[in-house]
């Protein structure tokens, strides 16, 4: 498994290719890329700042991937999450999952994102024309996670 928390951008194509070419058995690689929206709740977003808890963040992401691997027959998974200041349309997160068949890879990719959203210690602060605010957690993210229980 690969877990990286970094300020730098990442090359989604290269990460997917690496996962795919490493496993001749892989019939499927499913990837999710999150990016900074230019509008949130109707306000123009000029910048998103991501804070995290160094040490716990990496452990938390590794635990989430391990849980996914216990649940589905995955070959491997990569999670890269950026921190620091990001402009609109910057990539924030990549989750890529390799498995023999697509069903397991689709499900595991969603599972990892749903747990990342509700358990991994990252916090977003958004700068708009109306000032800078910490974003609130969404109830819909909790509901998305509960469907796996």
């Amino acid at each position: 498994m690969t877990v990286r928390v970094q300020e730098a951008d990442f090359d989604t194509g290269a990460e997917i290719a690496q996962l795919r070419l490493q496993y001749p058995m892989a019939g499927a690689v499913v990837a999710f890329v999150g990016q900074v929206r230019d509008l949130n709740d109707g306000k123009a977003v000029s910048r998103l700042t991501l804070e995290h808890y160094p040490g716990m963040t990496e452990k938390s992401l590794a635990t989430i991937i391990e849980q996914a691997m216990q649940r589905w027959p995955l070959l491997d998974a990569t999670v890269i999450h950026r921190v620091g200041e990001l402009p609109p349309q910057a990539q924030i997160v990549l989750v890529a999952v390799a498995s023999a068949h697509r069903g397991d890879a689709f499900a595991a990719c969603e599972f990892i994102m749903d747990y990342l959203k509700t358990e991994a210690p990252f916090w977003k602060r958004e700068a708009t024309s109306e000032g800078t605010v910490w974003l609130d957690a969404r109830d819909s993210d909790q509901l998305s996670r509960k469907r796996w229980q």
Binding site: M56, K59, E119, A120, F122, W123, A137
Partner: peptide, 26 residues
């Protein structure tokens, strides 16, 4: 010690305890 916990968890001397709002990454 970098694992999510609840009110009933025990804090031992030497532990690292973090408090934070609900997470909003991804």
């Amino acid at each position: 010690n970098q694992q999510l916990a609840t009110e009933t968890a025990t804090v031992q001397p030497g532990d690292e305890i973090a408090f934070f709002p609900p997470v909003t990454g991804g």
